[in-house]
Simulated assay, not measured.
Amino acid sequence: MSLDQALSELFKLLKIPGILTCIFFILKNIKPVSFFSANVVERRLFSKEQMFSFKAIKHVLNTLLWMIVLYPTTFYIMDIIPDPNDFFSYVIVIVGGIIWGVVNITNEGALQQIKSSRLCKGLFVVVFMVCLILFYTQLYSFFIDSLLSEKEKFNLKVFGVSMLVLFLFTLPIPFILIPISKFIKWSHEQSVYIEDEKKQKWYILYSINKETVLLGNKNEQRLCSKTMIKRKEELYNTPFEMVKTDN
Rank of each mutant, 00 (worst) to 15 (best):
M1A: 08
L7T: 12
E9Y: 04
L10G: 07
F11N: 13
K12T: 06
K12F: 06
K12N: 11
L14V: 15
K15L: 09
C22A: 15
F25Q: 10
S34Q: 15
F36D: 05
N39M: 03
E42G: 00
R44S: 02
A56T: 15
A56N: 13
M67N: 08
I68T: 11
V69I: 14
Y71G: 06
T73W: 14
T74Q: 07
I81N: 05
I81G: 04
F88N: 11
S89W: 03
S89I: 05
V91E: 11
I92F: 15
I92M: 15
G96Y: 07
V102C: 06
V102P: 02
V102A: 07
N104Q: 12
E108D: 08
S116A: 14
S116F: 01
C120M: 12
V126G: 02
L134E: 04
F135T: 15
Y136Q: 09
T137Q: 07
F142V: 06
F143C: 14
S146E: 13
L147E: 12
E150Y: 03
V158H: 00
V158M: 09
G160I: 04
V161P: 01
L164H: 00
L166P: 00
T170L: 12
F175K: 14
I176Y: 14
I176E: 10
P179G: 09
P179C: 08
Q190Y: 10
Y193S: 05
E195V: 03
Q200G: 00
K201M: 02
W202D: 00
Y206M: 02
S207T: 06
S207C: 07
E211D: 14
L215R: 02
N217D: 13
E220M: 13
Q221A: 10
Q221P: 03
Q221S: 11
Q221R: 11
C224F: 04
T227Y: 00
L235T: 00
F240V: 01
M242G: 03
V243F: 03
T245N: 14
